[in-house]
Computed example of a mutant assay.
Amino acid sequence: MKRCRPADGSYPSMLGTVAVRVIDCEITIATATGRRTGLYRLIPQDPPAPHAALHFVRDVHPGSGR
């Protein structure tokens, strides 16, 4: 069964027998010493709505996903 990639850029996968969604994102943090940007791969259990990836990133790291 072929699954289509959602418009949010995430994609479904399997981790053993668990359905997961792979979300590649860029997160920038600002501290007193400056800003730092990093690339991260988040792998939550498959959320109920494929378009939820951006909301998931915002929940995990407030201030990101802008």
Rank of each mutant, 00 (worst) to 15 (best):
T17M: 13
K2N: 12
G63M: 11
I29P: 00
T28R: 09
D46Q: 14
P48T: 11
C25A: 15
T17W: 02
M1G: 14
L15T: 04
T33Y: 13
Q45G: 06
L42I: 15
H55L: 06
I29W: 11
E26K: 11
C4D: 15
R35M: 11
H51N: 14
S13F: 03
I27E: 07
Y40H: 15
C4H: 08
R66Y: 14
H61D: 00
G65L: 05
R36V: 14
L54C: 04
L42P: 04
C4R: 11
A30Y: 07
L54E: 11
G16F: 05
G16K: 00
L15M: 12
R3A: 07
R41L: 03
R41N: 03
V60C: 12
G34A: 08
G63S: 09
I43L: 06
F56H: 04
D46M: 09
T17E: 10
A30E: 14
F56K: 01
A53Y: 00
T37H: 07
P48Y: 01
L42N: 03
A49Q: 08
P62S: 05
D59K: 02
A7W: 10
G34D: 13
R58T: 05
A7R: 06
L39A: 13
R35Y: 03
V60H: 10
M1C: 07
T31M: 14
V60M: 15
Q45N: 11
L42R: 05
R5N: 02
R41P: 02
G16I: 12
T33S: 14
A7N: 09
H61C: 14
F56V: 15
L15A: 14
G9T: 05
H51I: 04
D8A: 05
P62C: 06
G34S: 12
I23D: 03
L15V: 14
P50Q: 06
Y40N: 01
G65K: 00
D46T: 00
C4Y: 13
K2S: 13
P48G: 04
R21V: 00
S10F: 07
R21Y: 01
P12A: 13
Y11S: 11
T17S: 14
Q45V: 09
Q45R: 12
I23P: 09
V20W: 01
S13R: 06
E26W: 04
P47W: 00
R41C: 11
P50E: 06
F56Y: 13
T28G: 02
F56T: 10
T31P: 04
P62E: 08
R21E: 10
P62M: 03
Y40M: 09
P50M: 04
I43T: 11
T33A: 15
